[in-house]
Simulated scan of single mutants.
Amino acid sequence: MEEKVLQQKVREVLKKIKSIIKIPVGISNHHIHLTESDYKKLFPNEEIKIKRELNQPGEFASEQTVTIKGTKGKIERVRILGPFRAHSQVELSLTDTRKLGIKVPIRLSGNLTNTPGIDLESKYGSLHLDDGVIVAKRHIHMSEEEAALLGVKKGDTVSVLVNSDERSVVFNDVEIRPGKKFKLEMHLDTDEANAGNISRESFGKIID
Rank of each mutant, 00 (worst) to 15 (best):
P57V: 11
S37D: 14
I50D: 12
H33A: 00
K40R: 12
H31C: 12
I50P: 02
K51M: 12
E46S: 14
L34Q: 04
H31D: 11
F43P: 06
E46A: 05
N29Q: 07
R52I: 05
L34E: 03
Q56H: 11
A61Y: 07
L42P: 01
I48Y: 02
F43S: 04
K40A: 12
E53F: 05
N55H: 10
K41M: 02
Q56I: 09
L34H: 08
S37M: 13
N29D: 12
E36L: 09
R52V: 09
E47I: 01
G58V: 09
K49R: 14
K49F: 02
Q56A: 03
R52D: 10
R52Y: 05
H31L: 08
P57W: 13
K51Y: 15
S37C: 00
F60W: 04
Y39E: 10
E47M: 01
H31S: 06
K49S: 14
T35E: 02
P57A: 02
L34W: 14
N29P: 10
L42W: 02
L34F: 12
A61G: 12
G58T: 08
E46Q: 14
D38F: 04
A61H: 03
I48L: 11
K49N: 15
K49P: 01
D38L: 03
D38S: 07
E53G: 00
F60N: 00
I50C: 15
I50V: 14
L34I: 04
F60E: 02
Y39P: 00
T35P: 00
H31N: 11
K49L: 08
N45K: 13
S62R: 11
G58D: 03
E59K: 06
E53Q: 10
I48V: 13
F60A: 01
L54S: 08
I50E: 13
S37L: 14
E47R: 09
K41A: 05
E47G: 15
